[in-house]
Amino acid sequence: MATQANPEAVLPAQGIEAPRSGRIDPKYLRSRTSRSNFEMMAWVFMRVSGAALVVLIFVHLWVNLMVGDGIHQIDFSFVAGKWANPVWQFWDLTMLWLAMLHGTNGMRTIINDYAEKDSTRAWLKAILYLSAAVIIILGTMVIFTFEPCLTDEAGNLLEGVAPEFCHGV
């Protein structure tokens, strides 16, 4: 712009910078980062995982609480029995992963929405991702490394805890 600033301004706003000299507060400027489909995928994932979780969770609750003896049947051996079946192993694994990712992404969104300072946002997200990772890894390990037939030091099955099928081994 062919603009010459005159040092002897005739009517300057005293002590105040001209509110608009073509500049925009940096907090409104978008960083030109590479465009990716991540946010779109995240958005789609929330809808798909949400729908899937409704099925997964309600079947889970129905099987655990309504079928057979209902709530009274739940004990160590009930869980062990379920996880002896690969279908239930897969079911619970899916439920764990979807629920954790769904929840984490939801929390990420809330942090994005409400954290005003960049540093706060970064810290909160770091804690969130770490805790999500720990739970997912732990949960996955439990599902796959679960030992249904607990024994005492002598190698005998623990009575009343180990499920029926352990006795057949």
């Binding site: 465009r35 489909n37 946010e39 995240a42 958005w43 969104t109 994005n112």
Partner: peptide, 14 residues
Amino acid sequence: LEVLNDKEGVWRCR
């Protein structure tokens, strides 16, 4: 659509 597929685009809508 590419512009609005940004992380500050339509996906910020709640």
